[in-house]
Simulated scan of single mutants.
Amino acid sequence: MNNHEAINWADFKNQLLLHPDLDLQFQYAENKWVDASYHITEIKQAPITSVDCGGKMNRWTEIIIQLWEPVNQQQDRAMQVNKALSIINLVEKTLPLNPLGTVKIEFGNSEFDTRQMYPNTIGANGGNLIIDLRPDSVQCKALERGGSCGTTATGEECCTPASEKPKIELKNMAIAPVCVPGGGCC
């Protein structure tokens, strides 16, 4: 969740509850909007368990709202927040959603490859509740913990805490006549 705070499910839902009578609009890129005819096709709860490059196990939950733009079904107005809340309530009757789960919106159309994005900002503007979506980027959790990333000369694990990173011996390759196996130059 690069350079912005991800919103959890409880906070996201509370934002919707504050504006039930507004139209719910999604902006997925600069001056690019999900067509008003969109549908919320499903809400997924994805428990994630991973092991990062430093060998540390990580766990979190993502709540993913999938949007679909039907072809040739243009509308002037998007669904109201109340309609989205009714879909959420229907889902939560069957699948209790983790209030601390990280919210992502999944969307794509013929001009925009499908991806999961984070709500960057949520704000009322006139008769609309606008959710501005921004993609995440790949990050190294070991670096975020204060470790370092890179391959050591001995091929040891790449992401060790900075204080444990071995020192690398530099050799002057200009004076080595030939690089041979075991010669230390390769």
Rank of each mutant, 00 (worst) to 15 (best):
M1H: 09
E5K: 08
A6L: 08
I7L: 04
A10F: 08
A10K: 14
D11Y: 00
F12D: 04
K13C: 00
H19I: 02
P20S: 08
P20G: 09
P20C: 04
D21N: 15
L22M: 10
L22V: 07
Q27A: 10
Q27T: 04
Q27L: 00
Y28Q: 01
K32W: 03
K32D: 07
W33F: 14
V34E: 06
D35L: 07
A36I: 00
S37K: 02
Y38P: 03
H39R: 05
H39C: 02
H39D: 07
I40F: 01
T41S: 11
T41V: 11
E42C: 07
I43K: 04
I43R: 01
I43E: 01
A46Y: 05
A46P: 07
P47Q: 10
I48H: 04
T49R: 14
T49W: 01
V51Q: 14
K56Q: 14
M57D: 12
R59D: 05
R59I: 02
R59A: 07
W60Y: 12
T61M: 10
E62C: 05
I65R: 04
Q66K: 08
Q66F: 05
W68S: 08
W68Q: 11
E69H: 04
Q73P: 06
Q75T: 06
R77H: 15
R77C: 04
R77T: 15
A78E: 01
M79P: 00
Q80R: 15
V81H: 03
V81S: 02
A84P: 03
A84S: 11
A84L: 07
I87H: 03
L90H: 11
L90Y: 03
L90M: 12
K93I: 11
T94F: 12
T94K: 13
L95E: 14
L95R: 13
P96V: 08
L97M: 15
L97A: 09
N98E: 11
P99N: 13
P99H: 06
L100D: 15
V103I: 13
E106W: 02
N109I: 07
N109Y: 00
S110G: 13
S110I: 09
E111A: 14
F112Q: 09
T114G: 09
T114D: 09
T114K: 15
M117F: 00
M117Y: 00
Y118I: 05
P119G: 01
P119L: 08
N120L: 11
N120T: 04
T121H: 10
T121I: 04
I122L: 10
A124E: 15
N128L: 10
L129P: 01
I130P: 03
I131M: 07
D132Y: 03
P135A: 14
D136A: 14
Q139N: 12
C140V: 14
A142S: 12
A142H: 02
L143R: 06
L143C: 12
R145K: 07
R145S: 09
G146T: 09
G147H: 08
S148L: 11
S148C: 14
T152F: 08
A153F: 12
G155D: 10
E156I: 00
E157M: 14
E157T: 12
A162S: 13
K165Y: 13
K165G: 03
K165M: 13
P166F: 07
K167G: 13
E169G: 01
K171E: 10
M173N: 10
M173P: 02
A174P: 01
V178G: 06
C179I: 15
V180D: 08
P181M: 11
G183M: 12
G183Q: 11
C185N: 13
